[in-house]
Design a protein around this nucleic acid. Structure first.
Lengths: 336, 336
DNA sequence: CCCCTATGATTAACCGGTTAAGTTGACTTC
DNA sequence: GAAGTCAACTTAACCGGTTAATCATAGGGG
């Protein structure tokens, strides 16, 4: 290990024959530095390979140029089967990269890590915090807001009113999906709903209920937790309850996949016997058997928007919307 | 926004009637502080809600308690279809969380961001750097090592000899997979190889070639880039070249999926007409049609190991292995 | 020719911690 | 009881930047 001493501002200043303050100004691209001096300083910076010490800079500017993304699951659960978080990261990452900010990823599954997140944010290690879709009525976002830390949530937070968020139009998307089923003549339309402690789960179920009510049809609900495995289980239970069902709206693509497997297992043809509609439009659904009709939600765009909103908040830009709701869209393939 | 002023060490010290140094000692759990004083300080800390300022602390300790994970793709490409990076993040995240370190995620696709990563690491914003599987002979890891920054790569780096890494036994895994095909009577065994600028691509192809040579069989190679789409294209081209092939070893599960689709499209039954073996053992492969025989690589464990190695390096622990190679294992399902 | 202003550099205070060195006082020890 | 020891605390220097306040110098106006 070489551990060459990193040059400091002081060293650069000596070499360029000017004061620290002047070097600082040049480094930060300030105006009002004579061209000749600026050039001398830049030369010294290059020769010494000077890179500003971020800790020192943060200490005085009170800025860290980095931003936390909180994933409300333990590291073990996140990413296991799920394509949602990766897509969010993709959107957020791209936007932050463009803004030259760093992305700090934190898993906040346990109560312990929950505390850790709070301390971390409060310690001023990040300029702002984003929450990926949360479970239940998590008090953390509200707490941070009250401490004056910029926060944006993905998914309308339950309970907390004062936290800015970005979400998609779950309700509208589900309605158009279920109406599509009704319009194609299906009459025994069940649903596999998502977890009811998440807005995504709640709103999608609400959309199903409202649309069936409107159509005067009976409701059949099974619950899942967005995983493929839970989709299999739920589909089996729905078939047991009503062997004659002719359609199912599934609140996530992963669960819809499970449903397809269970239907095949039960000897049902899709869509001839049972029509299936999912929600997400993951890449994988274009290749399922049959290709899945589903409600597309723009997850990457959601990540991007979250990041943009947060950056706006951090930069104190006025006119920040408290809530942004992105549109969803029914993508019709073969399963319904 | 409340922006309540955060209390400083100074404030706590005043409140507790002691000096800053003493508070610092208590906060950092040092011994040699009288119990009564310690208690008074802790009370003051609680009352004021004091949280140490990380920037100030880093400035003097030269430690940031955070670690970078570099993904060598742009944000757009990472995560698009791939389950590798999520799994790595899962492993790394869990391990770092246990060590109370933060994870900073960086995408280093473009040359610009490449530079950004270097500056970031050199600026001392992280205590160490991990690289997820790299393309080509990237000089960055070597550069950082030479600058005295702890580095660990996932995947044996090409060219650079001096960089510690964690990898899996690609070669051994492929050999057992291809031997399995040979043993089950297959004689026209093709392969869909991965990108040849990555060790994973190179080593897996080498394993295929060596085993076929050993068995005295002809080699048929098509190239892909680990994506499903490329698997479809490659499989089609292999079938065009040799319509009578009876097996294919595919260097990634994603591509294997594509191959399954292409085979089905071409009217081949799997495994009756053509046996297929993949590499990865993603969750998804348990549910493919038919379930995929594949070489399991412990990706999450790889992430964990990387993190552990890096933490060891950072803590200056002796006897750090320069290279760790994790075992792979053939998982036999229905496709071969 | 003198004063005023603008421009551009420097000085020095400060950010909020850590820690080496110094001080204090109680307790041994002979 | 003086000297020495040790534990426990305080003092003060330092980490490496930013920036308000200050100062020097040249140019312009009357």
């Amino acid at each position: 290990m070489v551990t060459r001493e990193r040059p400091t501002l002081e060293a650069v200043a000596r070499r360029a024959g000017v004061s620290r303050a002047t070097v600082s100004r040049v480094v930060n691209g300030s105006t009002s530095v004579a061209a000749s001096i600026r050039e001398a300083v830049n030369r010294a910076v290059d020769e010494l390979g000077y890179v500003p010490n971020q800790a020192a800079r943060s200490l005085v500017t009170q800025r860290t140029e980095s931003i936390a993304l909180i994933l409300p699951e333990t590291a073990n659960r996140v990413f296991s089967d799920d394509l949602f978080f990766p897509a969010i990261i993709r959107g957020v990452g791209g936007e932050l990269e463009a803004a030259d900010k760093q992305l700090v990823l934190m898993m906040a599954g346990s109560a312990k890590s929950h505390d850790r997140v709070e301390r971390y944010a409060v310690a001023g290690h990040v300029d702002g915090v984003m929450f990926a879709s949360m479970h239940g009525a998590d008090p953390l976002p509200g707490t941070l807001v009250r401490l004056g830390i910029p926060v944006v949530c993905s998914g309308r937070p339950i309970g907390e009113a004062a936290v800015p968020y970005v979400d998609v139009d779950h309700y509208g998307g589900v309605c158009s999906a279920v109406r599509h089923l009704v319009a194609s003549g299906r009459r025994r339309i069940a649903t596999i709903a998502g977890p009811q402690d998440m807005v995504a789960g709640i709103d999608r179920l609400a959309g199903y209920r409202a649309t069936l009510e409107e159509a005067g049809l009976a409701q059949h609900v099974a619950l899942g937790d967005f995983t493929r495995e839970s989709g299999i289980v739920a589909m089996r239970s729905l078939l047991a309850d009503d062997p004659a069902l002719d359609a199912v709206f599934v609140a996530s693509d992963m669960m819809a996949h499970g449903a397809l497997l269970a239907l095949k297992d039960a000897g049902r043809r899709v869509p001839a016997d049972v029509a299936v509609v999912g929600f997400d439009d993951f890449e994988i659904s274009r290749y399922s058997e049959p290709p899945l009709t589903t409600v597309r939600q723009p997850i990457v765009e959601m990540g991007r928007t979250m990041a943009r909103q947060l950056l706006g908040l951090i930069n104190g830009e006025p006119h920040q919307a408290d809530a942004v709701v992105l549109p969803t869209e029914l993508v019709i393939r073969d399963s319904a």
